[in-house]
């Protein structure tokens, strides 16, 4: 049986761990709520957020992040549903080779492709556009997403597609009317994961959209904004950081199981 001492000690350690995990984020929230020097406000204030929103152009960059993340999530989900379906349910004949090819992309760092990507987009004039960030991220999310969907579809009973094909449905109709709706939960978890990676991506954004403020994503804006410490008060930078983190944090609190499951199981595959 558990002794009282162990219970208290163990929970005390967990509590300390939790506080350490929380502290940095809580501290920038508190800092963001503190009046900046030279401001007339007293006590807590929201004016740093307003200041960051207008001076840092975060209304624009948050929208850009949303556009890029949305495009990548939707395109990846569709491509992965199609590929996962053909690889697992339809037992695509060369699937071993296909999976092997996908394995390559699973472990490769973006450093390994950043130079040719830059050259490619520079020569096609797509540097500093949404495309420069959307296309490579669909490509890098595709392997994990395909494994994810193929695994999910593979564990469904085969009778599912057999019954439908006896009813005269075509293979594509079976995907559309049976596998796609059934797989929605897996797609949602996957989408959380892809959304998280895409929203937080920094290096690709830095290299592929360095000069066009109109398309820059929120983390990149934050990086530039926070780099100007001489002209920007730390409280306003903190507010900007909270703004950038907020969409993901809110999504996380509503869908935390999916985020955790995605991150942990995504590593197994």
């Amino acid at each position: 049986m558990e002794s009282k001492k162990e219970v208290v000690f163990g929970h005390a350690i967990l509590l300390i761990g939790a506080l350490i995990a929380l502290y940095p984020f809580v501290s920038i929230i508190l800092q963001a709520l503190t009046p900046a020097p030279g401001s007339g406000a007293e006590g807590w204030t929201l004016e740093n957020f307003i200041s960051a929103w207008t001076r840092g152009g975060f209304s624009r960059s948050l929208l850009n992040s949303a556009i890029v993340a949305f495009a990548v999530v939707v395109a990846t989900a569709i491509a992965a549903m199609l590929a996962g379906y053909v690889l697992s349910v339809l037992k695509f004949e060369w699937r071993v080779a296909v999976f092997a090819l996908l394995m390559i992309g699973l472990v490769l760092p973006s450093e390994a492709r950043i130079i040719p990507l830059y050259n490619l987009f520079a020569s096609t004039g797509l540097l500093n556009s949404y495309w420069a960030l959307i296309l490579p991220q669909i490509a890098s999310s595709f392997p994990l997403a395909t494994f994810w969907m193929a695994n999910y579809y593979a564990q469904l009973p085969e009778s599912l597609s057999e019954a439908a094909s006896l009813d005269g449905a075509s293979e594509f109709e079976i995907l559309r009317h049976i596998y796609a709706p059934i797989g929605m939960s897996a797609v949602l978890t996957l989408s959380c994961l892809v959304f998280l990676f895409t929203w937080n991506e920094f290096m690709l954004a830095l290299v592929l959209m360095p000069d066009n403020v109109a398309v820059q994503t929120a983390p990149l804006s934050l990086s530039f904004f926070a780099g100007n410490e001489r002209t920007t008060e730390p409280q306003v930078i903190a507010a900007a950081a909270v703004l950038v983190a907020l969409p993901v944090v809110v999504a996380y609190f509503f869908l935390q199981r999916r985020f955790m499951q995605g991150l942990l199981e995504g590593a197994v595959k």
Partner: peptide, 13 residues
């Protein structure tokens, strides 16, 4: 929580 925060946000903090 630290896993889901953007690295830039983590750096600022």
């Amino acid at each position: 929580l630290p896993q889901i925060l953007a690295t830039v946000v983590v750096a600022v903090a």
